[in-house]
């Protein structure tokens, strides 16, 4: 019996042994693992710095990473936050968890896509698009503006993701910023009256359109790009591209250096690596993300930001707006 006990203890020590190495960097990532992991592996290969990543899951909707960062504030474990949009970085900035970072690489990014003190720096952007099922709705019958969703002919035929989570929440905040509170609230109430189906996530919206459950829905370019790869019946368009339209929401990935992080220098190296044309090209190829650095090579099927009319918003004020309207969005979802 004593031998059995000793063996168990030995096994447990073996299993729990940790690998402490100074040449490593810890990144918390809310970008889909299927796209972000290959980039981080390349960094590891090229620099010899081991990347220790924590990814979030669809099921837990970024609960893990954000709650961790907030709970770890007094003794940060993470060096870099790689977020799919700047909202989370702004929340962390407001809680004094991020720190500014500037370098040669950060200067390549247009000012509009980074926080003024560089608490977060954007790169490779996604856009909000309308994904549709060609067998259920012909392209010429599609809404051209997000405001068209309230038209009776689209009643019960479209879906949006839960506006409390993910990029949809940022999209709604941008609409409030762009249209004004009253008009945006009216629009949201009207789409509800017009039978908008609230899906669990953008992935769920994509799936419903692919399955033919819904004629169209709002999602991100990477979801739409994946859907096109999986099905010939699906395509996507950018909304509000007419001359006086409000434009489409562009959401850059956002990088933040964590204040008091254990491997600050390696964190800076990782940020500089991610803010390169090469990384933007990789993300363009894997998930159709649109580069922000001028002159970056992209495949033909990836749209260029030069050809899209963007929604004119300030990311910082939109993030602040989001925190203000969240109780209203919660009430809207629960109605």
């Amino acid at each position: 019996m004593r031998h059995l006990f000793n063996t168990i203890v030995l096994f447990m020590l073996m299993f729990t042994a940790c690998n402490l190495s100074p040449d490593e960097v810890t990144v918390y990532c809310t970008v889909d693992q299927v796209f972000s992991e290959p980039v981080l592996k390349d960094f590891e290969r090229e620099t010899g710095i081991k990347v220790k990543a924590v990814y979030d899951t669809e099921e837990t909707k970024s609960t893990g990473v954000m709650n961790r960062l907030i709970a770890e504030k007094d003794n940060p474990q993470c060096d870099v936050l790689w977020s799919g949009d700047p909202v989370r970085n702004s929340v962390l900035q407001s809680r004094d968890i991020t720190k500014p970072y500037q370098s040669e690489q950060t200067r390549l990014i247009p000012d509009h896509f980074k926080e003024k003190d560089s608490h977060w720096i954007g790169f490779s952007a996604r856009a909000r698009v309308l994904i549709y099922n060609k067998t259920l709705i012909p392209p010429d019958s599609l809404p051209r503006s997000i405001l068209d969703f309230t038209k009776p002919r689209f009643k019960g035929r479209f879906s949006i993701a839960n506006p409390l989570f993910g990029t949809t929440t940022f999209h709604m905040a941008a609409l409030f910023e762009s249209l004004g509170d009253e008009k945006a609230k009216q629009w949201m109430n009207d789409i509800k009256t017009n039978g908008a189906v609230v899906a669990a996530s953008n992935g769920d919206v994509k799936k419903r359109v692919m399955n033919g459950e819904m004629a169209f829905g709002l999602t991100d370019t990477d979801d739409a790009f994946e859907a096109k790869k999986e099905s010939d019946e699906v395509d996507y368009i950018f909304l509000d591209q007419q001359e006086n339209g409000i434009g489409t929401l562009i959401m850059p990935n956002a990088l933040s250096l964590i204040k008091g992080s254990p491997q600050n220098e390696n964190g800076e190296k990782l940020i500089n690596y991610l803010l390169t044309r090469e990384t933007e090209t990789k993300l363009a190829k894997s998930c159709a993300q649109m580069p922000l650095i001028k002159g970056t090579e992209v495949p033909e099927n990836v749209p260029s930001l030069d050809n899209i009319q963007p929604m004119k918003i300030d990311y910082k004020t939109t993030s602040e707006k989001l925190q203000v309207i969240q109780p209203w969005l919660k009430a809207w979802t629960e109605q």
Binding site: C18, E24, T26, V27, Y28, D32, Q33, V34, F35, K50, V51, K52, A53, V54, Y55, D56, T57, E58, E59, T60, T63, G64, N67, R68, Q77, C78, S201, G203, K207, D222, D223, E226, K229, E230, C287
Partner: peptide, 24 residues
């Protein structure tokens, strides 16, 4: 999800993390 050490790969976490945007 809340406490797994950075860099560690676990079957259940990876399955759900990949499911976010991978082909069905």
């Amino acid at each position: 999800m809340m406490v797994y050490p950075p860099g560690m790969e676990l079957m259940q976490v990876k399955t759900f993390a990949i499911s976010a945007n991978a082909p069905q």
